[in-house]
Amino acid sequence: MSESKNNKKNWPLWEVFVRSKNGLEHRHFGSLHAADAEMALENARDVYTRRNEGVSIWVVESKNITASNPKDNGELFEPASDKVYRHPTFYDLPDEVKHM
Protein backbone atom coordinates (compact mmCIF):
# COMPACT_ATOMS: atom_id res chain seq x y z
CA MET A 1 0.00 0.00 0.00
CA SER A 2 1.40 3.41 -0.90
CA GLU A 3 2.05 5.90 1.85
CA SER A 4 2.05 9.59 1.12
CA LYS A 5 4.32 12.20 2.64
CA ASN A 6 2.17 12.65 5.71
CA ASN A 7 2.20 8.88 6.28
CA LYS A 8 -1.40 8.50 5.32
CA LYS A 9 -2.59 5.46 3.45
CA ASN A 10 -3.70 6.12 -0.11
CA TRP A 11 -6.22 4.02 -1.97
CA PRO A 12 -4.36 1.06 -3.43
CA LEU A 13 -4.14 0.22 -7.13
CA TRP A 14 -6.37 -2.45 -8.67
CA GLU A 15 -6.14 -4.18 -12.04
CA VAL A 16 -9.39 -4.48 -13.95
CA PHE A 17 -10.38 -7.40 -16.19
CA VAL A 18 -13.57 -7.33 -18.23
CA ARG A 19 -15.45 -10.04 -20.12
CA SER A 20 -17.01 -8.20 -23.04
CA LYS A 21 -19.58 -10.93 -23.69
CA ASN A 22 -20.23 -14.51 -22.69
CA GLY A 23 -18.04 -16.84 -24.69
CA LEU A 24 -15.04 -14.53 -24.45
CA GLU A 25 -12.38 -14.51 -21.73
CA HIS A 26 -11.82 -11.66 -19.29
CA ARG A 27 -9.28 -9.28 -20.72
CA HIS A 28 -7.09 -6.72 -18.95
CA PHE A 29 -8.67 -3.28 -19.43
CA GLY A 30 -6.53 -1.08 -17.22
CA SER A 31 -6.26 -0.15 -13.57
CA LEU A 32 -7.70 2.22 -11.01
CA HIS A 33 -7.51 3.23 -7.37
CA ALA A 34 -10.10 2.20 -4.79
CA ALA A 35 -10.29 1.72 -1.04
CA ASP A 36 -11.51 -1.88 -1.26
CA ALA A 37 -12.62 -4.57 -3.71
CA GLU A 38 -16.25 -3.51 -3.65
CA MET A 39 -15.38 0.07 -4.53
CA ALA A 40 -12.93 -1.15 -7.16
CA LEU A 41 -15.77 -3.03 -8.86
CA GLU A 42 -18.05 -0.01 -8.76
CA ASN A 43 -15.35 2.31 -10.07
CA ALA A 44 -14.43 -0.20 -12.79
CA ARG A 45 -18.05 -0.19 -13.90
CA ASP A 46 -17.95 3.62 -14.29
CA VAL A 47 -14.45 3.93 -15.73
CA TYR A 48 -14.29 0.98 -18.12
CA THR A 49 -17.85 -0.01 -19.07
CA ARG A 50 -19.80 3.18 -19.84
CA ARG A 51 -20.95 1.79 -23.19
CA ASN A 52 -21.84 -1.83 -22.55
CA GLU A 53 -18.25 -2.98 -22.93
CA GLY A 54 -18.74 -5.75 -20.40
CA VAL A 55 -20.94 -8.41 -18.83
CA SER A 56 -18.55 -9.37 -16.04
CA ILE A 57 -15.72 -7.62 -14.18
CA TRP A 58 -12.82 -8.99 -12.14
CA VAL A 59 -10.67 -6.75 -9.97
CA VAL A 60 -7.48 -7.79 -8.26
CA GLU A 61 -5.19 -5.67 -6.18
CA SER A 62 -2.11 -4.98 -8.29
CA LYS A 63 0.31 -5.99 -5.53
CA ASN A 64 -1.05 -9.54 -5.73
CA ILE A 65 0.06 -10.04 -9.32
CA THR A 66 3.38 -11.74 -9.90
CA ALA A 67 4.77 -10.89 -13.31
CA SER A 68 7.58 -12.49 -15.27
CA ASN A 69 10.55 -10.27 -16.01
CA PRO A 70 11.22 -9.49 -19.69
CA LYS A 71 14.91 -10.01 -18.87
CA ASP A 72 14.17 -13.73 -18.46
CA ASN A 73 12.33 -14.03 -21.75
CA GLY A 74 15.18 -15.98 -23.34
CA GLU A 75 15.18 -18.66 -20.68
CA LEU A 76 11.41 -18.76 -20.43
CA PHE A 77 10.26 -18.69 -24.02
CA GLU A 78 13.09 -19.57 -26.35
CA PRO A 79 13.12 -23.30 -25.59
CA ALA A 80 9.74 -23.51 -27.37
CA SER A 81 11.01 -22.03 -30.60
CA ASP A 82 13.17 -25.01 -31.69
CA LYS A 83 10.43 -27.58 -31.07
CA VAL A 84 9.02 -27.59 -34.56
CA TYR A 85 7.65 -31.11 -34.01
CA ARG A 86 4.91 -29.52 -31.93
CA HIS A 87 3.37 -28.17 -35.11
CA PRO A 88 1.35 -30.18 -37.66
CA THR A 89 3.41 -28.99 -40.62
CA PHE A 90 6.45 -30.89 -39.25
CA TYR A 91 4.98 -34.20 -40.44
CA ASP A 92 5.32 -35.28 -44.09
CA LEU A 93 2.27 -37.03 -45.42
CA PRO A 94 1.32 -37.86 -49.03
CA ASP A 95 -1.18 -35.48 -50.67
CA GLU A 96 -3.71 -38.32 -51.09
CA VAL A 97 -4.36 -38.34 -47.37
CA LYS A 98 -7.39 -36.13 -46.84
CA HIS A 99 -9.00 -34.61 -43.76
CA MET A 100 -5.83 -34.55 -41.67
Partner: peptide, 19 residues
Amino acid sequence: AGHGLYLYSATETLGISRE
Protein backbone atom coordinates in the same frame (compact mmCIF):
# COMPACT_ATOMS: atom_id res chain seq x y z
CA ALA B 1 -13.00 12.05 -16.38
CA GLY B 2 -12.63 8.52 -17.74
CA HIS B 3 -9.98 9.65 -20.23
CA GLY B 4 -8.03 11.25 -17.41
CA LEU B 5 -8.23 8.03 -15.38
CA TYR B 6 -7.14 5.78 -18.30
CA LEU B 7 -4.17 8.05 -18.83
CA TYR B 8 -3.18 8.39 -15.18
CA SER B 9 -3.16 4.63 -14.71
CA ALA B 10 -1.18 4.17 -17.95
CA THR B 11 1.34 6.72 -16.64
CA GLU B 12 1.62 4.92 -13.32
CA THR B 13 2.95 1.83 -15.14
CA LEU B 14 6.15 3.86 -15.65
CA GLY B 15 6.78 3.88 -11.91
CA ILE B 16 5.33 7.19 -10.74
CA SER B 17 2.50 7.24 -8.19
CA ARG B 18 -0.89 8.89 -8.61
CA GLU B 19 -0.10 11.08 -5.61
